[in-house]
Amino acid sequence: TTEYTFTDDEEARRAIEELKKRGLTFRYEKHGTTWRVRVD
């Protein structure tokens, strides 16, 4: 499991789109302004 942290909404959304394109399994949660994206 790899975890990424983003504080920029645009950056987080781009990363999420990219992961979807690659067909990877991931989860994300947003805490205030911080996004945590975990890739299995």
Rank of each mutant, 00 (worst) to 15 (best):
D9A: 12
K30E: 02
R14I: 09
V37Y: 00
H31D: 14
D9L: 10
E17D: 10
D8I: 04
T1L: 11
T5R: 06
L19I: 06
E3R: 04
D9F: 13
E3K: 03
L19G: 00
E18F: 10
E29V: 11
F6V: 00
E11A: 11
D40L: 14
R22V: 05
A12D: 01
V39Q: 01
R38L: 15
E3D: 06
R22S: 12
Y4R: 03
T34H: 09
W35N: 03
R38S: 14
G32I: 01
R38F: 15
L19A: 04
E17V: 08
T33K: 11
G23A: 03
R38I: 15
Y4S: 03
R22P: 00
F6Y: 11
H31V: 14
R14D: 06
Y28C: 15
K30I: 09
E3W: 15
D8N: 13
G23L: 03
E11N: 06
E10W: 08
D8T: 12
E11Y: 05
F26W: 03
T5Y: 14
G23K: 04
F6D: 01
E10Q: 09
T5H: 07
F6N: 01
Y4W: 13
R13Q: 10
E18R: 06
F6G: 02
R22T: 06
T33I: 08
E10H: 09
Y4I: 06
R27M: 11
E3Q: 05
A15W: 15
R27I: 14
K20S: 08
G23D: 03
D8Y: 03
R13V: 07
T34P: 00
V37H: 01
E3C: 15
T1C: 15
F26V: 15
H31I: 15
L19S: 01
R27V: 14
F6L: 02
R38E: 14
G32A: 03
Y28A: 13
A15P: 01
F26P: 07
Y4N: 02
D9T: 05
F6C: 12
L19K: 00
E17Q: 10
D40S: 12
K20W: 07
E10R: 09
V37T: 00
K21V: 06
K21H: 07
T7L: 09
Y4K: 02
T1D: 08
F6T: 01
T2W: 14
K30A: 03
K21G: 05
T25R: 12
W35G: 02
R38Q: 14
T34L: 13
R13W: 14
V37G: 00
L19H: 01
R38K: 13
H31L: 13
R36Q: 06
T1G: 11
T33Q: 11
E3V: 14
R38P: 00
R13K: 11
I16S: 01
T25M: 10
T33H: 08
R22Q: 11
T5P: 02
R14P: 01
K20E: 09
T34G: 06
T2Q: 11
D40R: 08
L24F: 10
K20P: 00
T5I: 15
R22W: 07
R22H: 08
E11P: 03
T2C: 15
F6I: 03
F26Q: 01
R36M: 11
E17L: 11
T7Y: 14
R13L: 13
T1Q: 09
T5A: 05
R36T: 14
K21S: 09
